[in-house]
Design a protein around this nucleic acid. Structure first.
Lengths: 282, 282
DNA sequence: AACACATTGCATGTAAAACTTCAAAAGTCT
DNA sequence: AGACTTTTGAAGTTTTACATGCAATGTGTT
């Protein structure tokens, strides 16, 4: 028997009435139980602190502290299977497996994103972008790819979107921003200093700063009004932008839902112009 | 300010170095932090118990216990988003589901990629790129983001890499190609005609054409010497580039394995130049 | 170099939680 | 009903964790 819950089931029938009540609490509300003290749990189920402690002995633990530790481990464990996938620095694995592990890693990061993401924040950012009179997108070096993806998608939806060049920003782009504008700043390790400068200038113009970065406490994260992080609690030196793209796709989906009339209208206009240009084949 | 993470972000810049280390731990591993004692956290990040406790005061709490309680509350609350997932007639909730479906869709695409990918083809492409004297990367419109990502990563590894502008190609870039060169052409719906033109010119120069597209039989797929497809049997009008990025990451991983000496050497050179420029913060 | 100031960790004090003991209450058997 | 066993909680003890004063160290400034 491995988890605490399994241990409890085995011993349950041989427990005293009071201990059974406590045991039931552990099964039904494990998260709460992991945080409360023996006294508090006793109070919750209507027995004395002593009875709670005695349950630990009855289950074969050396004391209540040990039981609590076991419970907390069970709770943290599910989170750990992601990190098990990541540092697969096994020298024995052949090269083909290394290639495939790239996908496994991406999947793990996506899973983590799905668990961590706060949908409300996505909505808030979508609303901000919809109602901004002007949007500046800044992303240099390795961040430029993701920045351009956002730029292109926003351009499909609305006007007044500008993007920096991949090599650096032009002050002229940023100084057009107003208090009704938004600046989306991408910044990933190695954090470039000019990214921070661009954000600072945009902030001086009163624009809302939306930071897309890897950690809340990264240089941009500290400046930004809203921050989106790709994989906060992961330890991955080599950052992939795949999860960032997914994040942006969520944002874009949100904007399409909230602002569908305008977007549809613009789409029509674009279609018309495309047709004139004969830009596309098929 | 509501959550502990937000509180930390506000105060972060005014914290002492030691306190910042502790604060970062709270952001990066909140679950673990919620369970550990002040002493244990201090041990984890390498500071004394005292410093941990002082962080609580710096953040405006009446003591460490209060901070811990706040963190534990934040942790127990997210459990409520289960109701978010459950089907509901509430319009708002359905929208939230739509957002989350973006991730589910990405995961499905990745899964598909993992099943379909031929690792040998990845190796072949990696070898081709390593041994090319010159690499041209073409990707216009929506394809440019992925193209740039590849460009940037290749630039980190080797010289003689050029990329088209997002709006169109310059014939001069392509005509420098030789029979020992490679041209990586990105093309996704709506297929732009100039992409095909660029590929044709590159082929006339004798360069190997590597097509990154959505279907084997897309315009580029028919021209290319090797073709990579993101999601052949998926029917998704709004194509995401997340899987393309994953594909590129596999390719890049392959190149790093096969050509690690050269890459390491170039990396060192770059590091040296970066240091001179002071391009990066931290 | 000398000063002020901030930061940090050790040592000690205090509060709280875990553990132990013991006697009363409840249940069981003859 | 009386004796025995089991169960339980209040009170006391020990351990652990939080809190605080103080000295040592480091940093920047005049």
């Amino acid at each position: 028997m491995r988890t605490l819950q399994e241990t409890i089931k085995v011993h349950y029938s041989s427990l005293s009435p009071g201990q059974q009540k406590v045991a039931a609490f552990y099964i039904e509300r494990p998260q709460e139980a992991a945080l409360l003290t023996a006294f508090q749990i006793g109070k919750q189920v209507g027995v004395s602190e002593t009875t709670v402690i005695r349950l630990a002995y009855a289950l074969g633990f050396s004391g209540y502290s040990e039981l609590q530790q076991a419970l907390r481990k069970d709770w943290l464990l599910p989170k750990q299977d992601i990190s098990e996938v990541l540092p697969s620095k096994d020298g024995q694995t052949n090269d083909n497996q290394l290639i495939r592990q790239v996908i496994l890693r991406e999947q793990a990061i996506l899973q983590n994103l799905a668990e961590q993401i706060k949908v409300d924040d996505v909505w808030a950012m979508a609303e901000t972008l919809i109602h901004s009179d002007r949007i500046y997108i800044g992303g240099f070096g390795s961040s430029y790819a993701a920045a351009y993806w956002l730029y292109y998608a926003l351009k499909q939806m609305r006007g007044n979107v500008v993007i920096s060049s991949p090599t650096g920003f032009m002050t002229e782009d940023i100084c057009d921003l107003t208090t009704n504008s938004a600046a989306v700043i991408f910044s990933f390790p190695r954090y470039r200093q000019d990214t921070v400068q661009a954000a600072t200038i945009a902030k001086e113009q009163g624009a809302k700063i939306i930071g897309i970065t890897d950690r809340t406490l990264s240089p941009i994260g500290q400046l930004a009004d809203m921050t989106f992080t790709s994989s906060e609690n992961e330890v991955t030196d080599a950052h992939s932008i795949a999860s960032i793209i997914s994040l942006l796709d969520m944002l874009l989906a949100g904007m399409r839902i909230r602002d569908c009339e305008h977007i549809a209208k613009r789409q029509q206009q674009l279609e018309h112009l495309y047709a004139e240009q004969q830009l596309f084949s098929e």
